[in-house]
Design a protein around this nucleic acid. Structure first.
Length: 361
DNA sequence: AAGTCGTGGTC
DNA sequence: TGACCAAGACT
């Protein structure tokens, strides 16, 4: 480290010792972090806020306190515990990683960054985070916070993602040999609480004096991002099919791809062109029933497209085989339903199938 | 290497 | 209200 880097990292660590946040996965000062807890938290925190992760993390560790417990769980249980958190491949990779470690690594995490990086669901960021936080290695995890802080500190005008290499080497150069895990968390805390994307609180920043972007009065202008691409709109028609006993037809999505392995209300494919009703109904899970369009639309924005689902509903007596599984709405809680499908359920239940009065009771 | 992969909060 | 964005990984 250069003298500058030494002074900067010392100042940040002093700030961290003062302002450190208590988080459920964070070990008390001086206590070694549990690699298992660090791993779970870091995977959950991928592209996900602390507020969203916290209840999931606590439920996860209460249910599967050790790596061996998670490895012994069924994938379905893990997916269910993950429902609502998004990026569901994380749950499958988490489960696969637990089983791999138990089967082939004596149930222990490797301490080396490279070995961690080779595990399913652990990329460059998470490998560095575990190595630094759980094993005290001089690794430098680079997440969105670190990118922002470093880009501002040095007023890097090279746009992302090209600037990433430079940011990684600058972050590494700032990382001290002592307390690298605390330094990494300090950098991320700084980005989360002070060096925020909008309206950074520069006067409260321990790097205030050194910050080049701040000196230009342009902190918010960094990092430089390429213009965002517009999200296309995709359309579909969902089939809300109610059996005479009240159970609703659901099906499991393919293992890979969008919402992989999660449950869904059956629907047409999601495409750019509108669906004429007759064309959509030709793809219904059962034929010969009377489909009734429900008022309203389900709108849901994914990372790279917006989805609008119309919903048609019908009652059926004898269902076709192989169409899916019949679940009573009261048992939906036990299903791994992604948020977009919960919206479909909400819409369908707000507008029950008419044409037949529900039995008064 | 650019596209794919969720969701909820924020302004 | 819609666009941005969050402790990224995988292909």
């Amino acid at each position: 480290m250069t003298p500058d880097a030494t002074a900067l990292s010392a100042r940040l660590l002093a700030w961290y010792d003062r302002e450190r946040r208590e988080l459920p996965w964070r070990a008390p000062p001086g206590v070694a972090a549990d690699p298992y807890a660090v791993w779970i938290s870091e995977v959950m925190l991928q592209q996900t806020t602390v507020a969203a992760v916290t209840p999931y993390f606590q439920a996860f560790l209460a249910r599967w306190p050790r790596l061996q417990d998670l490895a012994a769980a069924d994938l379905d249980e893990v997916l269910h515990a993950w429902q609502g958190l998004g990026y569901y491949s994380r749950a499958r990779n988490l489960h696969a990683c637990a089983r791999l470690l138990v089967a082939e690594h004596e149930g222990r995490f490797p301490a080396a960054e490279d070995d961690l990086r080779a595990l399913p669901g652990i990329g460059a960021y998470t490998a560095a985070a575990i190595a630094a936080i759980a094993f005290g290695q001089q690794a430098a995890p680079v997440d969105g916070n670190v990118i922002r802080v470093i880009a501002r500190l040095y007023a890097l005008d090279e746009p992302l993602p090209r600037a990433r290499q430079r940011i990684e080497s600058l972050a590494k150069a700032l990382t001290p040999a002592r307390r690298p895990g605390d330094f990494a968390q300090a950098l991320m805390d700084l980005g989360a609480t002070v060096c925020a994307p909008r309206q950074p609180r520069c006067p409260a920043c321990p790097w205030h004096q050194a910050c080049a972007a701040r000196a230009q009065g342009q902190a918010e202008a960094f990092p430089v991002r390429p213009p965002a691409t517009i999200k296309p709109l995709r359309l579909g028609v969902a089939f809300w099919l109610v059996r005479s006993d009240g159970a609703v037809l659901l099906r499991r999505r393919p293992e890979r791809g969008l919402l992989g392995g999660m449950m869904e209300v059956p629907s047409t494919p999601w495409r750019t062109e509108p669906w004429p009703l007759a064309e959509a109904l030709a793809l219904a899970p059962v034929a010969g029933v009377s489909w009734q369009p429900l008022p309203g639309l389900v709108s849901h924005t994914f990372t790279h497209f917006t989805l609008e689902l119309a919903v048609v509903a019908a009652r059926v007596g004898v269902p076709a085989a192989d169409a899916g599984v019949w679940i009573r709405p009261r048992d939906f809680a036990a299903q791994a339903l992604p948020s977009v499908m919960k919206k479909v359920v909400r819409l369908a239940q707000a507008a029950p199938v008419t044409g037949r009065k529900r039995p008064a009771r």
